[in-house]
Design a protein around this nucleic acid. Structure first.
Lengths: 246, 246
DNA sequence: ACATTTTTTGACGCTCCGTCATATTATTAA
DNA sequence: TTAATAATATGACGGAGCGTCAAAAAATGT
């Protein structure tokens, strides 16, 4: 259930040569697994094939990861880490609190648009049958990343209340507001990437609907400035290029 | 990929004795699988164990279902059928369009609260790695159920526009509104049932947050009567007992 | 009663996971 | 430098479970 290498890597401060080697190999394994996952899908990803490709034995892979699911969960953690970076950029977006909060939604939405495989990954790990086989330690790690990402969103909402963009009466609803956007975006993402033929069912592109709905939702909270007094299309472009300029 | 029994059952009008027997057995298998799933989880559910429990051989099970995933997808279809029933009751709720639409959200939310295992099931089947192994026919069936359930929601939104509860300018957004609620509820449900310790992260109970957020969202669309002019707590109780009175 | 078709069965082949005794490499001690 | 010891890597192996298919059993027709 626990793997030997894990505690070697993230131990004390100055990483020894050994530690660097291990960390490098772990990265190699993850990169390889990710590529294989993208190319051939989850069902075709096997520990044997990973081992063969990285040219280490299966046992060595198992020194790094407690199970196949544990490995996939690590990939998921890397995705969340990427998202955190984007969220931090959104946090620092120069603009109103509402714009900064919108930036988070846009960042989330576009990230998954750009990396649909990562979205699948995250969804896979959300499944309890998969989670059961992930090591306690890795689950804890993922949880702490999720906490971190949640905090970023929450602090923008708090900023909005503090500066008056959002009415003080919502002080008790900070986490509810975060949850609302989170669930809306998360649900949309999952519906989008699970083969349901949304378009044939008469739905618009998901990114577009999400942007519209998120605006309506925040308008419902009367978070100023309202989308009705804003050039939303333009704002979307501005934010997305600020977040993904490279 | 296709299973022999499928086309025997849902063929022409008067079901022969044979057909009834097959249908009964299929129900037995599904009921058994569902119970086993509830009791011991997805990982412990095997075709062998199902076969043993229903006292038929594995081959016979495979005459009904193309794969384990196909069987689980059938379970998921039953859940959606249950949901459709609830949605239909919501559709017929005596009240304003907004109340009827709210009833759909509450129905969804409470159904999953009452049957958390069904929620897991549905999520399992949403996963692409699982979907890959479901027969084309069953996927089509599920899709048509999803279409049907979507239609119910859409027609209430349309009613609202027709009677003026919702501004005509949203005529083009009917499916976006449905998608908004759908994604919000679906996302909340998944976040809730995937072991994320929401409560420890400072979140309220999911049903409560959903009800609040759905109201805010619909207020954002200015769907009358607004939640600010309504006794929401009372409405919630009224709707939930109308939907789940038995 | 026998022939033919349909259905059921479970042994079998196969894939893949995770383990662990053994082999290999690295480190330390003398 | 070499021997002893510790750390690490290996891949053969056991086991679980999926899906198949030839043969057996049951149902149906003649």
């Amino acid at each position: 259930m626990q793997c030997p290498v894990a505690k070697m890597i993230d131990s004390v401060r100055p990483p020894t040569r050994k530690q660097r080697e291990l960390a490098d190999r772990e990265k190699l394994i993850l990169d390889t697994a990710q590529t294989m996952l993208h190319q051939h899908g989850y069902n075709h990803l096997t520990m044997e094939r990973i081992a063969e490709t990285v040219e280490y034995s299966k046992g060595t892979i198992y020194n790094h990861f407690a199970s196949k699911e544990d490995l996939v969960c690590s990939l998921s953690c890397r995705c969340i880490t990427n998202l955190i970076e984007i969220f931090e950029r959104a946090y620092q977006f120069e603009g109103s609190t509402r714009e900064r909060y919108s930036a988070i939604g846009i960042g989330f939405s576009l990230y998954h648009q750009l990396h649909p495989m990562d979205a699948q990954n995250i969804q896979t790990v959300k499944n309890n049958a998969v989670r059961e086989k992930v090591s306690k330690e890795k689950l804890a790690k993922m949880e702490s990343l999720e906490q971190k990402i949640t905090k970023i969103a929450q602090s923008i909402v708090q900023d909005a209340i503090d500066c008056g963009d959002l009415d003080k009466k919502h002080q008790d609803n900070v986490s509810t507001i975060v949850f609302g956007c989170w669930s809306m975006h998360y649900g949309a993402l999952l519906l989008d990437q699970s083969d349901i033929p949304l378009h044939e069912m008469g739905f618009s592109p998901v990114v577009k609907m999400l942007w519209h709905n998120a605006n309506i939702y925040l308008d419902g909270y009367n978070w100023l400035p309202l989308s009705t007094t804003t050039d939303s299309n333009n704002l979307f472009k501005k934010i997305s290029s600020a977040l993904f300029d490279e």
